[in-house]
Design a protein around this nucleic acid. Structure first.
Length: 271
DNA sequence: CTTTTGACCTGACAGC
DNA sequence: TGCTGTCAGGTCAAAA
């Protein structure tokens, strides 16, 4: 589920239900996510009011007066709004109960997600403090990417998926952005010219923006009912298209492994 | 410092 | 039907 566009869509979907609401209760059914959910969350949050919601990388940040709840969806998580009292399913591990008669529910079958608490400045949390720039903000440009990759011999695809380089670029959009930029994923990061860095940063922005736009159209579905519809309607150029014809030149799309993840590319369009 | 590998989990699916 | 192996949208932490 959760590439950056889906996290952003989730944020936009849940925010109106949560903002300015007071917490009526917290339910922890299974605390064993990637890190254990803090057992004192119910005491910490009870009666507190949601002041702000933001996204940083793929983390959702729900700010209260005394600290911030940090949520991550991992590989398989989703957040939905339900009426209070809605029966929980097998993988519904965590609920935030609200005074407006709704609840926010985290469902995460693989339990790679996270629910954490940071008192004070959330940017100081160890998971957030060392992160690279947001791909959709001004700090991520050709000069930056060129400078930060100079000493890297690793493949450019691995570099753009490294959260110290830039956050929020997951496997789908790393593949799609490299196709759009016409860059072979195996290219050593340090050998990319500044012009190609400009191409790639632009491609990453465009691919993410387009996906957010599409996700936005299915936003109501995603949060209120069965979500995802619309997300999978996206047409990918290379992701998951092994053996199929390149939409641009007709060449067969290839699949290789990089860092234990699947990479898809067109050997003609991407050099 | 960079790079690689293992680890955390469940579910879906292919093949025998 | 049931077993085994592979794969999946993430990313940290430790080892090399």
């Amino acid at each position: 589920m959760p590439e950056l566009p889906e996290v952003e869509t989730t944020l936009r979907g849940i925010a109106p239900h949560l903002l300015h609401q007071r917490i009526a209760g917290v339910v922890i059914r299974n605390p064993r996510l990637r890190w254990e959910i803090p057992g004192n969350l119910p005491e910490l949050l009870h009666g507190q009011t949601v002041r702000d919601l933001q996204r940083r990388a793929k983390y959702l940040l729900i700010a209260f007066d005394r600290g911030t709840l940090i949520l991550h969806l991992g590989m398989s998580g989703n957040l939905r709004i339900h009426p209070l009292g809605t029966a929980a399913g097998k993988h519904d591990h965590f609920d935030l109960l609200l005074e407006n008669g709704k609840l926010l529910r985290l469902c995460d079958p693989r339990r790679f997600g996270a629910v954490l608490w940071q008192a004070g400045d959330v940017a100081q949390h160890p998971l957030l403090a060392e992160l690279g720039p947001e791909p959709l903000q001004s700090g991520f440009d050709a000069d930056y990417l060129h400078a930060v990759t100079r000493k890297r011999k690793a493949a450019i695809k691995l570099a753009i998926m490294d959260s110290h380089v830039v956050v929020g670029v997951g496997n789908i959009y790393a593949n799609e952005a490299l196709f759009r930029a016409g860059i072979r994923p195996q290219t050593a990061a340090g050998r990319l010219s500044k012009e190609r860095c400009a191409c790639l940063t632009a491609a990453i922005r465009e691919v993410l923006r387009a996906a957010i736009k599409q996700g936005g159209s299915s936003l109501r579905d995603y949060v209120d009912s069965d979500g995802k519809r619309g997300y999978f309607q996206q047409q990918y150029f290379v992701y998951g298209r092994t053996g199929e014809a390149c939409r641009t030149c007709g060449t067969t799309i290839r699949q290789v492994k990089q860092g234990q993840r699947s990479t898809f590319y067109c050997p003609v369009c991407q050099r």
